[in-house]
Nucleic acid binder design. Structure first.
Lengths: 348, 348
DNA sequence: TTGAAAGCGGTACCAA
DNA sequence: TTGGTACCGCTTTCAA
């Protein structure tokens, strides 16, 4: 057989026909046996022969051929421009882990496809070529109505979009980033803060999410006539944070929502280095709130107060997708992906 | 056309035959036109008609059918048990981003497939069903020789495995975690430290990587007869870190390599809270070194010294994969994925 | 209990 | 310049 390691001139992969020949039966019989449809059709001995032959040849069914014949694939596409994957952080990768295994258990193959972010249409075309059973777009903007339409025409039974809103025809996975901002705002306002700065990352990845969180803070502030909200542009570097901290006295703020823990920590450290005192109590102290509730955020002093996201278990979302696939005619609906609450600590 | 939003009873996706009918030509002609093989075969006017028809119907080629006919797919599988994705951290997601877009430019579809981690063979089977052109296994252990053999038999032209070593038949992507440990060890030894603790995360995700990094530190210590290396078990919680810090005096160590920045920061903070002084200089100070060079690690005081990974640009790895695919008979080789060096800061 | 054959969508050869 | 057609691997009806 193999007398040398290393990829020899690739032998043609074994087909079901090869298995049939090897077992001395027809292709149909092989198909029945290997798909558990053999009950009462194929004799025990024959089944055993077929299985042995498949094993011996290292036969693996050809997913493409199968779904071509079946008319529907079992691929679930998780679409996210790869730079966004980074923006989501550990929360996302953790979710991804459970989601893929849950899908696997349900008989689907979940796969992450980093979109070539050029245009919504281009992305949709690339996905549609794979004829996925479902597409989950985990990035805010890039899917519009024509793109969804294209996917549907390509046979995709369910299109789900992350965001506060979705294009017509698509389901919504609601993880309302405005809520994150609102919670942070309400928390600070309840503690008497009235002049609130909100970090707006200079990096393009988090931009959209940041805008929503800012809007949330504004919404919370609307309930207090004397409250003021001010966006603060900040890049993810120590220099940028130092610059912002240097300009601080002119801003006249008594609280900051740092977009997420990382930016919040960056700014908090810079403010401390510039001589400001951070803390939840007292008008002389500056309140700082982050989001995502990173472990690392508890290592700074004072510990960082953070908006924590309670994400729906990935198994549940996988189940939702499976349900949608069973009933493709279901009208687009809104499905909550999670909610936010504040975990108060010493910083604010 | 569409008078209601929402997925209507899914119309059959348009096929190339539908385009042919719509344009009043044959399927062959459609194929030629849409694949740029029309030069000198099909008239300009006909080409225009075909393209218009395709556009109008929203035609998207069926990747499965195409690769079925072609005998080879254009799918590149990035395989990583999803919990490992988390373990790799931002370094990995950043790499993933560039890699997928680079592959896309080369005409391949790169896709992340979280393996059902049950067994190497089961994983290989799941991947083989997709008949990928190449598989990159980014997780250390789970691919053995039979699994690689199976993939090759399924027509996968290139199998690449991350790690210091690879099973026969597979290429090696070398990101030598021992080197990370060695660099940390050499750094501490050069600064006169001799009793070095090395964090071993209790979590299963980083376990293998941690073992290699520990081995690297040991290798570095071998050059100094009086040096001692001691593994330190630590879970990713503040309680665990506090416990380890409480037991510190009995350990008699003058330096720690914290596995990565996160564990290092966790431990460093706990040690500080327990009254120890961290720093690079002076025998009364405890030296702490992390790895991954996170931005956040610069926010603690003293700033964390870290082992920085210099990763080969993803475009380059994508190019390598493409080359391997063009010459599948190339003997398995070792390809460096990156290297490590220490970024010294105040903590050690 | 098993086999023959049609057909999923697309490509490419050969004939017209 | 274009059309007819065989075939890629697999499932499934129908007939034997």
């Amino acid at each position: 057989m193999t007398d040398r390691a290393g990829p020899r001139a690739t032998p043609t992969p074994p087909t079901s026909a090869a298995v049939a020949r090897h077992a001395g039966v027809s292709r149909a019989t092989v198909s029945y046996v290997l798909n558990g449809q053999a009950a009462g059709r194929v004799g025990e001995r024959t089944q055993a022969r077929v299985r042995a032959a498949a094993e011996e040849l290292g036969y693996v069914p050809h997913a493409a051929a199968r779904s071509l014949r079946a008319g529907r694939g079992r691929l679930v596409l998780l679409a996210a421009p790869a730079d966004a994957v980074e923006a989501f952080g550990p929360l996302f990768t953790g979710f991804l882990a459970g989601f893929q295994t849950a899908l696997h258990r349900l008989g689907y193959t979940g796969v992450l496809h980093g979109a070539p972010a050029s245009s919504p249409m281009a992305a949709a075309r690339a996905w549609a070529e794979l004829r996925p059973a479902a597409v989950l777009n985990l990035y805010g903007p890039p899917l519009d109505a024509p793109a969804v339409e294209l996917l549907h025409r390509a046979g995709t039974a369910a299109v789900l979009v992350l965001g506060p809103s979705a294009p017509p025809g698509a389901h919504t996975l609601l993880l309302d980033q405005r809520e994150a901002g609102r919670r942070a705002g309400e928390h600070l306002l309840a503690r008497g803060r009235r002049r609130i700065g909100v970090v707006r990352p200079a990096e393009p990845g988090p931009a959209d999410c940041a805008e929503l969180r800012l809007a949330g803070v504004r919404a919370a502030a609307a309930a207090h006539p004397d409250a003021r909200v001010r966006p603060l542009d900040l890049a993810r570097t120590e220099e940028s944070a130092a610059g912002l901290a240097a300009a601080w006295p002119e801003l006249g703020l008594d609280a900051v929502f740092g977009y997420n823990d990382e930016y919040a920590m960056l700014l908090m450290r810079a403010l401390q280095d510039a001589g400001h005192t951070i803390g939840a109590d007292g008008p002389d102290r500056l309140a700082v709130v982050g989001a995502d509730d990173l472990l690392l955020a508890r290592l700074l002093r004072p510990r960082l107060t953070s908006v924590h996201a309670e994400i729906t278990p990935p198994e549940q979302i996988a189940g939702l997708v499976a349900d949608l696939l069973l009933d493709p005619a279901a009208p687009p609906a809104i499905h909550r992906l999670g909610s936010f609450h504040v975990t108060p600590r010493a910083s604010g």
